[in-house]
Amino acid sequence: MNNKTVIKTQNTLRTFITCSVFILLISRPIYASEGEHRDEDTRNAEFVLISDNMAQKMGVVTQKVSAGQLNITTTVYGNVVTDPASLSHVRARFDGMVTKVNANLGYKVKKGETLAIVESNESLKSYPVTAPFSGIVIARHANEGELSNGQVLFSIANYEDVWAQLKIFPQQLSEIADQQSVQLSLSEAKLNTTIQHILPSPDEKPYVLAYAKIANTSGRWPVGAAIKGLVTINKLDVAMMVPKAAIQEFEGTSVVFVKEGEEYHPVPVMLGQQDSNNIEVLSGLHIADVIVSQNSYLFKADLEKSEAGHDH
């Protein structure tokens, strides 16, 4: 073999090795060198590399780790009920004959609007029966030619203010009291309000009833609807907390993805108490670490996919 042939063979081999190493590198999970670890005991060497522009397009949201306050809650259930002050059963002032009816079931009426005309039996004079407040006619029992005779002619309700009626069972009584905060939810609607009253339930039921007022101008809290309430029973200050959505299970451990430049590292964490939105972090993170607070599952999926490819 002459020198030219040897040089050509060496160049071909060198090119083959370079290409093979490149292919191997891009098919493996990315690892940081030892010098890149801020904390050798808690930082995972494996990470996802992604540009800030691409992360934004993927809907990735980050935030800094900080101290905070957990709202410890207990769950209760109940229904939306009519505000007693916004329900009226309208009667005629004097017995007599109903000579005219102006309102029907479902009509929206204003305060002072004439609902019906009644002719008094004693004076034989006609007088109006009017709406005590603005609202909706939810029942009508008045017909022309009938006698009023003290019966309810109309029922009117105003649903702009309603109440949450929540069942509190004996094991919860020691934790729940007047003026405690409660978050109500119905489908996608959520509302923060306060327990105003706790009263015995009727018919000797094995629970008491807590009432919380709901502003219902939107109409999203219909009377009779089943609702869920989270009553705040304690407020707990914690040294570090993160959104629950930031936590992922990776390789059998709870992790949070920490952003370092354009690298996202799965960092194992020890967790403590939690509320409906946030969870205490006992160890693994540092104050001011930048973590993925939304869509962190994307990084978990990427690492698992990379590992699966590497195994093969």
Score class of each variant (00 low, 15 high):
N44R: 09
V80D: 03
A288Y: 13
Y107G: 08
F22L: 12
M270R: 10
L186T: 05
E36Y: 14
V231Y: 04
N3V: 07
V292G: 08
L184M: 05
R43L: 08
S201P: 04
I227G: 06
M58C: 10
A92V: 02
P200C: 05
L115E: 01
V231S: 01
A210H: 13
Y159V: 10
V118Y: 01
A246L: 04
E36L: 12
F16N: 13
I136N: 13
A116K: 00
G68I: 01
Q56T: 12
V76F: 12
D237H: 13
M241E: 14
W163D: 02
F257P: 01
S20I: 09
I287H: 09
K235Q: 14
L209G: 00
K213A: 12
K8M: 11
L271N: 07
G145F: 03
I279E: 09
L87C: 05
T75W: 14
E36P: 06
I279R: 08
N295T: 03
R14Q: 15
S296P: 01
L282S: 02
E263W: 14
V238C: 07
L298C: 03
E188M: 12
H286S: 11
Y211E: 07
I279T: 14
K108W: 09
D275C: 04
T42V: 14
L184E: 06
D302V: 12
N278I: 03
T253N: 11
Q294V: 15
L186S: 11
G106R: 08
L186A: 09
S185F: 08
T5A: 10
L49A: 12
L87V: 15
L282T: 03
I195H: 03
E113D: 08
Y211K: 05
A85T: 07
G224T: 03
K167S: 14
S306C: 08
T75K: 13
D41M: 10
T74Y: 10
E122H: 05
Y159P: 04
S181L: 13
G78N: 01
N102T: 06
L87I: 11
E204N: 14
Y211L: 07
P132Q: 02
G224D: 04
S276C: 03
R220M: 10
W163Q: 03
E144I: 11
G96F: 06
F47V: 07
V101L: 02
V292A: 06
Y31A: 11
H141Y: 15
R43N: 13
I227R: 04
Y107L: 04
N53H: 08
D39T: 09
S120C: 02
E204H: 06
Q294C: 08
L25Q: 13
K100Q: 15
K235H: 14
Y264V: 01
